[in-house]
């Protein structure tokens, strides 16, 4: 996994609430046996109409919005457990998703793929949307070490929570398997006790 420490980027706003994983990556694109190339179909049915025409009004199709940070409405990533949703976001180039609430499974999948989900208050989320609305090129700085999201041009500073272990994994690019393998003796002892 790629290491994550500091990110400076402009943001892409997606004001819709309850964005489910079927929107992030529709099921018909899940028929793959490796995890590359999903970015092409990220938000497929919001980016393109059924006849393949570009939907100009959708945020990813608007050239003024660029960057590695997606700012999304409440309850982002609800629905299915497909990790392809995280793969598609990462493959498209997103490294951070900001929302006022994340669905559980998506949040775990994101962290396991080097994407940082940042939960902010509904007020802060609104302030960020407003800041992007005023200046589409406005930049945010995400400092994972410090657990701070800063948008200096809009005087926004938000502290965010992250599990210490997951933070360590992101900063070092570790994944959970290495950790679990190191616990093999304890796992076997537990199995013996339960048998």
């Amino acid at each position: 996994m790629e290491k994550f420490t500091l990110l400076k980027s402009s943001m892409v706003p997606l004001t819709v609430e309850n964005v489910d994983t079927d929107q992030i990556i529709p099921a018909r694109f899940l028929k793959a046996t490796d995890r590359k190339g999903f970015g092409e179909n990220l938000f497929r049915d919001w980016r393109f109409s059924t006849d393949g025409q570009i939907k100009k009004e959708f945020t990813l199709n608007q050239s003024q919005y660029k960057g590695a940070i997606l700012v999304a409405g409440n309850n982002f990533g609800c629905g299915s457990s497909r990790e392809h949703a995280a793969w598609a976001l990462a493959d498209y180039g997103f490294k951070v998703v900001i929302s006022s609430f994340f669905a559980d499974i998506f949040k775990g999948n994101a962290l396991n793929n080097g994407i940082l989900p940042i939960q902010v208050s509904p007020q802060d989320l609104q302030a960020i949307f407003t800041a992007i609305d005023r200046d589409t090129t406005i930049e945010a700085i995400v400092d994972l070490e410090d657990q701070k999201l800063r948008i200096n041009a809009a005087d926004i500073v938000v502290s965010f929570e992250i599990n210490d272990y997951k933070k360590m994994c992101l900063i070092n690019g570790y994944d959970d398997i290495d950790y679990l393998i190191s616990q093999k003796e304890a796992i076997e002892a537990f199995e013996q006790k339960r048998a």
Binding site: E83, A86, I177
Partner: peptide, 11 residues
């Protein structure tokens, strides 16, 4: 998710 399936397979 898939990464967690791998964790379970491994441990």
């Amino acid at each position: 998710g898939t990464s967690q399936v791998a964790q379970v397979f491994a441990s």
